[in-house]
Nucleic acid binder design. Structure first.
Length: 761
DNA sequence: GTTGGTATCTGTGGA
DNA sequence: AGATACCAAC
């Protein structure tokens, strides 16, 4: 393909093309929702390759594995298999890969363990316990987030201890010793050869900062082109690393960041829009180019305009006009329900109706909620209606107990100093090593600055416990000896048997027990697939099929990364995880004060703005249909709570909202009484004709749905007289095809359960 | 050390 | 409501 004349450039609009072809020097792309951002990114990379750069000189950082995978697939379509050598991945996975190579330079083993948030929490709770602190005061999650944000802002335990502001905050929260916990936590992680998610970023920064053996040179020379997706969601630490890689003396500064300030939804974990402003400032003198993608190719106008109006309520934003030429489309439908249960039913009803009426497939539809706990009721009704669905973001496969147990064994084989893994399996299956022994072990380890594993032979304990620990040690060692000769799959199978896990599970013949065994087998299959899969990322490096590499890989996977995500199902997920996705029909549910916006966000303007951006993200996922719902009451924390409708509903101008179903009122209290009876009818875009009533309501007497039969002449409120041509579907789901005279599109498919039809003969 | 039952706590989002 | 921590009895 000839650069500049390639066919892949033809399908781009002017601005997109400029963003793709201006490959040299710093570029900021401000990309509104549905503006073809991924296209621009992938074509840009393809273009860079077409112009002669080697794929492995390109670094593309994303937030999710999914985004990375999608990008690679799309690059591959343009440039072929070379795409596999592009360094495209999440911040965490790319950095882990680099750290694996450079680990020794910062005092880590290359087979370091990655602690997930459970490991982090469990370690923190051990530390809090050991310090004899009250854990009802020293809330683990609070501590975790304090430490996380410290790392994200390049604050070491030492700097933390010297920071008056942070310490005052801690004192006010009645936990003055957070800095000490942070210090201990960091030391324990290091001793265990473990990095938590933040460390994957922080330790890389540290490496580039201290720069032993001028290691930074290697990566600066290697990565000639750097791209960052979802730049609005990067935190200070992430940008600091990027800056280290591209902003130095002789740098070509081929850096492209893509983002949308209006879609920044991760401030709570340290992301800052400041990065976009800083970026412009940092690269101003290097002829930075800014491109704004403002045309939305995804949604119809009512949706786009409603989103625009809502986001106007936020302060501070980059000026842009998002527009669509897809026509007005459908107005937004609002469902109000009395209870959370009714909300579930009404949403499911509407989905059913929409499927029949507009021939939508399940996969065209998504239900988005603020918190994962909301999924249950929708699941119930979808199941009842026999609509296939899939819930994302719950417990991922790798978080299941039996899978974690198995993985803990593998982690221990790879890295004996991994304390969280050791704690998890030292007495599972039960081998008589109890709490007191483990506590003793932990104390001695801490006192002698060794790991628990190292203290294992020396800890005073009962003969039985001693023997057990000896056996345990032997087992891990025997597996460890095979690390070099056996591949990851063989090794894992060996461990599964030798540890007694398999036998333990086989002994349990309950349904759940068999499920657990299945999961272990699925895990083993997964390891096998990993061994056989050809995952060359870099032509320079040999594929790494070691167990350590596998473990580091899966530590960064989430629920979304399961491969079998194709099929015709309705998608249920949190709004956060829906970012980047699009569906023909979107349901945003639970639009109530204290839920969406979340109660935690209500006390600050910043928090509220972020909630509003989150709502903006939710709304802009919709291509054609947008349905918003809320319930006046819902069960939370085991108690019934009453909430008013979300303020975001009020922020949508009424002209974008379908007139039925939702009576707008300044007094939400009144709505409760009016709302319950109003049944949702999903309407096509209204033409002048179809909105006119054909029948006098006072004389109209609808018959029961099951009385309607093929061949009957019937009367419909809006379409007038019609003849029933056929009926399909059974029981509650009967859909009639009816011919109405004098209506455009005279053949209508009507769901009998909802339609009011009067039999005429 | 292990088991099972009760008390207590928690409760946004995700790599 | 559900998960987890804690405690008493075996």
């Amino acid at each position: 393909m000839i650069p500049g004349g390639g066919s892949y450039l033809d399908g781009l609009n002017d601005i997109q093309r400029q963003a793709v072809t201006n490959t040299e020097g710093p570029v900021l792309v401000v990309a509104g929702p549905g503006s073809g951002k991924t296209r621009v990114l992938t074509y840009r990379i393809a273009h860079i390759i077409e112009k002669g750069a080697a794929p492995w000189q390109i670094l593309a950082l994303t937030f999710t594995n999914k985004a990375a995978r999608e990008m690679k697939e799309r690059i591959e379509k343009v440039v072929g298999a070379r795409a596999n050598s592009v360094w495209a991945g999440t911040f965490h996975s790319i950095f882990a890969r680099i750290l694996r190579v450079e680990a020794d330079k910062i005092g880590y083993p290359s087979n370091f363990t990655i602690y997930d948030s459970d490991d982090t929490k469990s370690l923190l709770s051990t530390i809090v316990k050991e310090m004899n602190l009250d854990k009802s005061v020293y809330n683990i999650n609070t501590i975790r987030s304090r430490i996380s944000s410290a790392k994200s802002n390049l604050i070491t335990p030492r700097l933390y201890a010297e920071n008056d502001e942070l310490k005052t905050q801690d004192r006010m929260a009645k936990m003055p010793l957070v800095h000490e916990i942070y210090g201990k936590y960091t030391a324990r992680c290091k001793r265990a050869g473990a990095m938590d998610f933040d460390d994957l970023l922080y330790r890389l920064y540290e490496l580039l900062q201290s720069n032993p053996d001028n290691v930074i040179e290697k990566y600066r020379n290697k990565f000639k082109y750097v791209l960052v997706d979802e730049f609005q969601d990067t935190n200070h630490l992430q940008y600091s690393i990027v800056r280290k890689l591209v902003n130095y003396d002789k740098s070509l500064r081929n850096i492209c960041v893509v983002g949308d300030d209006a879609q920044s939804i991760y401030a709570f974990r340290g992301a800052t829009i400041q990065n976009i402003l800083d970026f412009e400032e940092d690269f101003k003198k290097y002829n930075i180019k800014v491109f704004k993608l403002e045309q939305n190719y995804r949604s119809t106008e009512h949706i786009v305009q409603a989103a625009n109006e809502v986001i106007l309520n936020n302060r501070r934003q980059i000026q842009k006009k998002i527009w669509s030429d897809k026509g007005q489309g459908n107005k937004i439908k609002v469902i109000k329900a009395m209870t959370d249960n009714e909300e579930g039913k009404r949403v499911a009803d509407t989905i059913l109706e929409q499927k029949n009426r507009f021939h939508l497939g399940n996969s065209d539809i998504a239900i988005l909620y603020r918190t994962n706990a909301q999924s249950r009721i929708f699941e119930e009704y979808l199941r009842r209606y026999n609509i296939h669905y899939r819930v994302f973001g719950g417990l991922s496969f790798y978080q299941r107990k039996e899978v974690k147990d198995m993985i803990a064994y593998l982690r221990l084989v790879v890295n004996q100093n991994d304390e969280e893994a050791l704690r998890r399996v030292i007495n599972f299956p039960k081998r008589g090593i109890g709490k007191t022994t483990i506590e003793k072990l932990s104390k001695i380890a801490d006192a002698t600055n060794q790991t628990m594993w190292e203290c294992l032979p020396a800890v005073p304990a009962s003969t039985r416990a001693k023997n057990s620990m000896g056996e345990f040690r032997k087992m891990i060692m025997s597996a460890k000896q095979r690390v070099d000769t056996a591949n990851a799959y063989e090794l894992a199978t060996y461990v599964a048997k030798r540890s007694g896990l398999i036998d333990l599970m086989k002994a349990d013949t309950s349904i759940e027990g068999m499920g657990r065994l299945e999961n272990i087998n699925a895990l083993l299959d997964g390891i096998n697939a990993f061994v056989e899969e050809d995952n060359l990322i870099d032509t320079e490096s040999i594929p790494d099929k070691s167990l350590a590499s596998y473990l580091q890989n899966i530590a960064l996977l989430t629920d979304f990364d399961d491969k079998n995500n194709n099929g015709d199902f309705v998608t249920l997920m949190s709004v956060h995880s829906a970012k980047g996705l699009e569906f023909k029909s979107i349901y945003v549910v639970g639009l109530e004060e204290n839920l969406f916006p979340s109660a935690m966000a209500l006390d600050s303007k910043d928090g509220l703005d972020e909630e509003r951006r989150l709502f903006y993200v939710a709304v802009t996922r919709a291509e054609q249909f947008l349905t918003l719902s809320f319930a006046n009451s819902r069960y939370r924390f085991g108690k019934m709570r009453f909430n008013q409708a979300s303020r975001f509903l009020e922020e949508i101008p009424p002209i974008h909202i379908e007139s039925t179903g939702y009576i707008r009122s300044k007094s939400p209290a009144n709505q409760a009484h009016q709302g319950a009876r109003i049944v949702g009818n999903f309407k096509k875009p209204r033409t002048a004709q179809s909105s006119r009533l054909m029948v006098d309501p006072s004389t109209f007497k609808p018959n029961a749905p099951d009385e309607i039969q093929v061949g009957m002449k019937i009367l419909h409120m809006k379409f007038g007289e019609g003849k029933v041509l056929s009926i399909d579907g059974g029981k509650d789901n009967r859909v009639a095809t009816i011919f109405f005279q004098g209506v455009d599109n005279p053949e209508r498919r009507i769901m009998l359960r909802f339609a009011k039809l009067q039999i005429l003969n």
